[in-house]
């Protein structure tokens, strides 16, 4: 039963990572690329971490996995917002010139 859950989570995680990569190649704009890279990657990495914490089945791994999940969901939007704000400022300057 746990093997089935690990298989399902691994494949879901890899699927969302591939979706993020396809979005990076196919989407036309920088803002849409930031959207694809941030959301799909945090979701896919969360599923890979869930699979890892079920597979290793020890307390230290579970605690590390929960910490990394919290860290991902705290910092990935921050990094994306920082890049988007910098790009917006640069676009405004180019419009003024």
């Amino acid at each position: 039963m746990s093997n089935f859950i690990i298989t399902l989570f691994l494949l879901i995680g890899a699927f969302f990572m591939v979706v993020a990569a396809i979005g990076m190649v196919r989407l036309p704009d920088l803002y849409t690329r930031i959207h694809a890279a941030t959301k799909a990657t945090s979701f896919g990495l969360m599923f890979l971490l869930l699979a890892g914490s079920i597979y290793f089945d020890s307390w230290t791994t579970v605690v590390k996995s929960i910490l990394l999940m919290i860290f991902i969901y705290l910092t990935a939007p921050l990094a994306a917002s920082s890049i988007a704000k910098t790009t917006k400022n640069l676009d405004n300057e180019e419009d003024l010139d």
Binding site: L10, M24, T41, G52, F56, T60, I83
Partner: peptide
């Protein structure tokens, strides 16, 4: 675009390290 792509590459490398640790049964890779 390159900064965003590199951010995504580091997330991919973290995922690859995680699954590689599962494959070789080494929890240290987390």
């Amino acid at each position: 675009d390159r900064v965003v792509a590199f951010d995504l590459i580091t997330s991919l490398v973290a995922g690859i390290a995680l699954v590689y640790g599962m494959l070789n049964d080494v929890p240290f890779f987390m």
